[in-house]
Nucleic acid binder design. Structure first.
Lengths: 342, 342
DNA sequence: GAATAATGTGCAAACGATTTCGCTTTAATT
DNA sequence: AATTAAAGCGAAATCGTTTGCACATTATTC
């Protein structure tokens, strides 16, 4: 059963296909009378516009692509990405934009997905949900000229790349100072790989805070997680050196929760013996035991704003490349304790 | 700067557009020599196929749509959906299929998204990631005739609808019997709204197990969560009646974790005083305190298989509508304790 | 060497919309 | 009443592919 086309409707309504098309776009050049007539016929025949045909001539897909970081696995295990997606999704729906996501798992595969999306003209723009060093996607996108925005601070010339990010240096500084104010002086820092911009920025914020407060930065206190360096090993290493910090700045809730468990295993009490402050304030932080004090990075907002910027640029390509900073705030819970009032 | 088309390539290579097209699809009717020549020109000119033009004539989008349950919020807060998506994504990538997701938040909005996808011919098939009563999406899809599969047990005539599911009755029965074997007799059941098929099935499994073991089913022990009936209230109600079960079957990890927290607030120890077995074995179960014994429903597999079924049907529409059952198993951790060896 | 069969290409018509231009018809202006 | 302006609609080109059919060339067979 062939789908009904604009021509079928035209014939049935005794008008030209062009008229039907104009009714579709509610052109002011068509009389109300004709519009009514045509719409009635469309209704009766069960007409529905063919998206691809429209895209082909209009050259606008009303679709944005979303690039997930590294492996899908990582992206989708961490509540971060889903929450970003939620924000993006909300705005897209509001603007009648569609979402297409990459399916690749390896960096190479993801890159190919992106090329396909862009060259095949499947999307009007993209959101890159991460920012990291030695990434091929972003350079490809700037070269291609397609609108895109990165969630995070882009590597390279910022004024050529739109971005939505937190002030991670500042946020980490505040997190660290929070612990300092509670009287902590031996403070550890745990993050993901420093190739991710967010890790680097937060490390910066941490060291800034330590320096400004004249506290020692022990290189052994700074740890980057890895397959070869899981949390368990990190904790072991710290204990072996028998110099366990009294406070930790951990750059995401999952890692913090993990730290919590590793410490518990060693019978080290949180927050009595060790305080932890983490980032993202996801549901994990809320449900942990003890609930985690966490920097809320407003992930949803991050997604929402990035979609907003992107669609703005799609609609107005001449727009200057803005970059927006989403504020952060501390959500105090039970994972930090003052050393002062003892 | 206009994109280079098949015609440009044809001109440059001194062949007809049709020849270029055939080279693209590696048709055996074109000589190796010509193929080589054309490919070289494509390379030089930076030709890339326009996806939409192809879709328009071939009528196959190589894209599947994913319908999220109810609100995006719920879908994306629960690790379930992201994990399903991960499985779907993996297979899609392998088969060079693209993924397009709904963006609507309300049921109505989602339904409209689906209609757009289907009528607008944007997708070759869909995966509905839930199964619930009074849902408009599934009936619409069967009527439309487009291939689709539901994750979960479909409401209505099963042989007309492809599905991928666990045997939830059996799984819940086993979960319940696990507690029974540990000596529990007063066992509570907590799930989401019974309109979701999965809740209904697990309730069934629970009651089956109780009956078969001649245990009382106290209606007060069966609870369905809701905005108006959050976990906190559920626990309060049970305590007020001063009849707290010694064991709980909870139909997902998040709810179980929540229960854990509510109980801790009342100073009720898990697993010493109350045992909990939950479903899904997500990362939540692993990271909870104590870690939760949970029925692994192999969510990733659920997604992977559903994509597999769907793409099979897309490629071979005459295929009978199969339904596949993914096995479950218990992952024992620390949230259950035997009452026997006391 | 003529007839037949492969083999390799090209022509042109789709696919289902949008959009430019121009032609009627009607209304407004003088 | 004649002229001009505006409104309403249609014809046809276009977007970038694919594909059925026809045609030309070369190889094979008798």
């Amino acid at each position: 059963m062939m789908a009904v086309t604009i021509k079928d409707v035209a014939k049935q309504a005794n008008v030209a296909p062009s008229t039907v098309s104009r009714v579709l776009s509610d052109s002011p050049r068509i009389s109300e009378k004709t519009k009514k007539k045509v719409r009635k016929v469309m209704e009766e025949m069960g007409y529905y516009i063919n998206h691809n045909a429209r895209v082909l001539v209009q050259k606008s897909t009303q679709t944005i692509g979303i690039v997930m970081k590294n492996s899908t696995s990582a992206s989708l295990h961490d509540p971060f990405f889903p929450e970003v997606l939620r924000g993006i999704s909300a705005l897209c729906h509001q603007q009648s934009f569609n979402i297409s996501i990459t399916t690749g798992e390896s960096e190479e595969a993801i890159f190919n997905d992106v090329v396909k999306m862009v060259q095949g003209k499947r999307v009007d723009g993209l959101i890159v949900s991460y920012s990291k060093k030695d990434d091929k996607v972003v350079p490809f996108l700037v070269k291609s000229g397609i609108p895109f925005v990165v969630v995070g601070k882009p590597i390279g010339k910022a004024n050529e790349i739109m971005s939505v990010d937190n002030d991670n240096v500042q946020a980490a500084k505040e997190a660290t100072e929070y612990l300092i104010r509670l009287g902590h002086t031996k403070i550890g820092f745990i993050s993901e790989q420093p190739k991710y911009e967010v890790s680097a920025a937060r490390l910066q914020g941490y060291t800034d805070a330590m320096r400004m407060n004249n506290l020692d930065i022990d290189a052994d206190f700074i740890k980057h997680l890895d397959k070869s360096e899981p949390m368990k090993r990190v904790v072991d290493e710290l204990l072996d050196g028998s110099k366990l910090p009294t406070g930790f700045v951990v750059t995401d809730d999952i890692a913090a929760l993990n730290l919590l468990l590793c410490l518990r295993e060693k019978n080290i009490k949180v927050p009595e013996e060790v305080s932890i402050i983490s980032f993202n304030n996801t549901i994990i932080a809320k449900l942990a035991t003890p609930p985690l004090t966490s920097i809320d990075t407003q992930i949803y907002q991050l997604g929402y704003e990035s979609a907003k910027c992107l669609i703005e640029e799609i609609k107005n390509p001449l727009m200057f490349k803005k970059s927006v900073i989403i504020p952060t705030f501390i959500e105090e819970r039970g994972s930090c304790q003052s050393l002062l009032d003892k």
